[in-house]
Design a protein around this nucleic acid. Structure first.
Length: 169
DNA sequence: GCCAACGTTGGC
DNA sequence: GCCAACGTTGGC
């Protein structure tokens, strides 16, 4: 069981969008390390902190869950997508993604300022200067402290089994 | 909107 | 394989 943090610009895809849609294909990741995390290390049921970047304030705002293995991101084959990658092919896909399911919103969002106050979180990649990786690892202790700081979880009851997808190929 | 930091590309 | 140039990210 691993813990993760994913970034999303609140304007393009927020925790509210995820709450509404229940499930998101985490497509468009075009960074090798982020891809490798998804492809090699993410497991079904891993928990994922959801972070809004370029937000006011930028903050960890909720929780999601990994509900699929990594599989090829179809946007890399789509000429009309902004994520199109001419060097990718169906036989040799370059980019993979996972599906994330909404778990909960935090009753208290945790801004970068809030997070920086916590000595125990100072080694989180998120707080390192110049860290732009959009999929990051989170230590268990960090995750637990963050949940504690976040207070109650809102919407936690939502996890219908009807959303389970089967992506075996 | 600025700009520092970073990742990727491509010429050599 | 180096590294300059470029594009992008994301806090401020």
């Amino acid at each position: 069981m691993n813990y993760w943090l994913v970034k999303s610009e609140a304007e393009s895809y927020s925790i509210l969008d995820l709450e509404k849609e229940k499930l998101a294909c985490w497509d468009g990741v075009r960074n090798y390390q982020a891809r490798n995390y998804m492809q090699n290390d993410m497991q079904i049921n891993d928990l994922v902190l959801f972070y809004h970047s370029n937000a006011k304030p930028s903050a960890i705002v909720g929780l999601a869950k990994v509900v699929s293995q990594a599989y090829p991101d179809p946007t890399q084959f789509d000429k009309d997508s902004k994520y199109f990658d001419p060097k990718a092919s169906q036989e040799k896909p370059r980019w993979h993604m996972v599906d994330l399911e909404f778990v909960a919103k935090f009753s208290k969002v945790l801004s970068l300022n809030d997070l920086r106050k916590e000595k125990a979180l100072e080694n989180m990649p998120l707080l390192k200067k110049g860290m732009r990786l959009s999929v990051q690892t989170v230590k268990r202790e960090e995750y637990e402290l963050i949940l504690k700081l976040a207070g109650a979880l809102v919407g936690k009851e939502i996890s219908p089994s009807s959303l389970k997808h089967d992506y075996q190929k």
